[in-house]
């Protein structure tokens, strides 16, 4: 069935079992009785639809590398504790390099204000109806943000476990923040986000006595989706485990 007009053509099999980078001629002619003649010449492209974002992300990446800025994309569901973790990171001053924050939210600058109150420069991107940050939004704010060489930039994405997974911002590492109040089967339900992240912070460990969260099971689910994913368990509220996060940052994103 034609996807757009629903005409009653017998279903043609579009199941392709092929490797990346392989070019095929998909010249299927299907006669349609819906009055729009297909004519003109065929131009074969095989282009990634997100190439505009990916190219901009590479520009951002190049900018960060040239200035020795360790850029991180922080992703999570709303309310997992991204901003609280950043506030504590800024206030405790255990991270050696200067810290900068870019905040992404649909509206308002409450998160940005919290970071400024904690003691670090922060710039806000408002996406309006948008549900994720993209590389172009980050690129426009880089110069006004007044970043320093040899620093750490936290880009706190819009709270959303779905859409941000597709949009490379040019970060060196993607950090997924989850919390023990969210259910240990999150990786199964949001595989794309878990697959695209490098480090997973398991926050709110102070609440473990009050919730049914099996940390071992959570890690097992997550590693099935992404065998290279690493974990730090911590509580932004009590400070338990947060030294591991600082150590990881001080080592430029490794253990």
């Amino acid at each position: 069935m034609c996807e757009t007009c629903g005409c009653g053509e017998p279903e043609h099999d579009h199941d392709h079992d092929h490797e990346h980078g392989h070019t095929h001629d998909h010249n299927h002619e299907h006669p349609h009785a819906h009055g729009l003649a297909e004519s003109g010449r065929k131009i074969i492209l095989q282009k990634d639809i997100l190439q505009a974002n990916n190219l901009m992300a590479e520009r951002n990446r190049g900018y960060f590398e040239a200035r020795d800025i360790f850029a991180l994309n922080l992703v999570s569901a709303p309310g997992s504790g991204k901003t609280t973790i950043l506030e504590r990171t800024v206030m405790e001053k255990a991270v050696k390099l200067p810290l900068f924050v870019i905040e992404g939210d649909q509206q308002g600058d409450r998160d940005s204000e919290r970071i400024r109150q904690a003691g670090a420069p922060s710039h806000q991107i408002n996406t309006g109806m948008g549900c994720h940050l993209d590389a172009a939004m980050v690129n426009t704010i880089l110069k006004p943000a007044g970043l320093k060489d040899h620093s750490i930039l936290f880009i706190e994405n819009v709270g959303n476990l779905v859409c941000p997974s597709l949009f490379d911002l040019g970060e060196r590492k993607r950090v997924l923040i989850t919390s023990v109040t969210e259910g240990e089967d999150k990786p199964v339900k949001y595989p794309h986000m878990f697959r695209s992240s490098h480090l997973c912070l398991i926050n709110k460990t102070d609440l473990l006595p009050y919730v049914d969260f099996d940390i071992a099971k959570f890690k097992e689910y997550a590693r099935a989706i992404n065998p290279d994913l690493e974990f730090i368990e911590l509580s932004a509220k009590t400070g338990a485990g947060i030294q591991h996060w600082y150590d990881w940052l001080n080592k430029g994103g490794s253990f």
Binding site: H18, H20, I43, L45, D48, A224
Partner: peptide
């Protein structure tokens, strides 16, 4: 699915080689 088991040897060490495409293949225009 991202978590797969090899039907031959039952290993979980499976690498995705196709299926996450998002491509503009071609267009017809004049």
């Amino acid at each position: 699915a991202f978590h797969s088991t090899c039907p031959e040897c039952k290993s979980n060490a499976v690498e995705l080689i196709a299926g996450d495409d998002l491509k503009l293949i071609s267009l017809e225009a004049e």
